[in-house]
């Protein structure tokens, strides 16, 4: 891939990643987020987090399946950081609009409400990944350790989808499509690892 294409694609990715927050800001300013703006903000930031997490988790299996797409790696950090950005907005929505910055209310929510417990846990799992996302951090940690640390993203993804299910009303099935996609992406990793080992073994024989 040449430099111009890469710059163009990166620009488009930035625009796509910023579009949801731009839409929310516009809606907040014009008060056009519908009858229940708090719920609209909560849902939009949460859903965007899950979508970006899913996209960032799709890159590794796609590269293994299609070596010609190996350049996708250049986008993984960007997607991951934007996922954390929306996760933080989502968390702040709860802190500001649901608990009104009341520490006691936050504590009792975390203790009493399992969907909040698991949601906060997901954010806490993403935080060290964001903190170690710079080239300097990768060098400092060393590739192996960095990779091991960043496996936390799988747990964060699982926590996020569980958070989604625990929050919807009994019998509502809206989180299902996202759950299927994430399950496939997570399952693809061991499957592809076995596949790769076999290929290597065949090549060696």
């Amino acid at each position: 891939m040449n430099r111009t294409t890469l710059v163009l694609l990166k620009t488009l990715t930035w625009i796509a990643c910023l579009a949801p927050v731009a839409w929310l800001v516009y809606g907040a300013v014009t008060n056009s987020l519908g009858p229940d703006p708090t719920a609209a903000i909560t849902f939009a930031t949460g859903l965007t987090t899950l979508r970006l997490l899913t996209l960032s988790l799709a890159i590794t299996p796609l590269r293994q399946l299609f070596p010609r797409l190996s350049w996708l790696i250049k986008f993984r950090r960007l997607l991951g950081l934007f996922a954390f950005f929306y996760a933080t907005l989502h968390l702040m929505t709860w802190v500001a609009l649901y608990t009104a910055f009341d520490v006691n209310a936050m504590n009792s929510d975390i203790v009493k409400r399992r969907f909040i417990t698991v949601g906060v846990l997901a954010w806490l799992l993403l935080f060290p990944l964001t903190a170690t996302s710079t080239n300097w951090a990768i060098r400092k940690l060393g590739g192996k350790r960095w990779n091991r640390l960043h496996k936390l993203v799988y747990f964060a993804a699982v926590c996020s989808i569980v958070h989604y299910w625990w929050q919807v009303k009994t019998g509502v099935l809206t989180p299902l499509p996202m759950t299927v996609v994430l399950t496939v992406l997570l399952a693809a990793r061991p499957v592809l690892a076995v596949w790769k080992r076999r290929r290597v073994a065949v090549a060696a024989a």
Partner: peptide
Amino acid sequence: VDHPRWSQKTERRIGQPFYAQR
């Protein structure tokens, strides 16, 4: 008396801007 999954202490008034709903 809370709903098992969320608090009933406060509510969001429909049709208000996000900062004035609670």
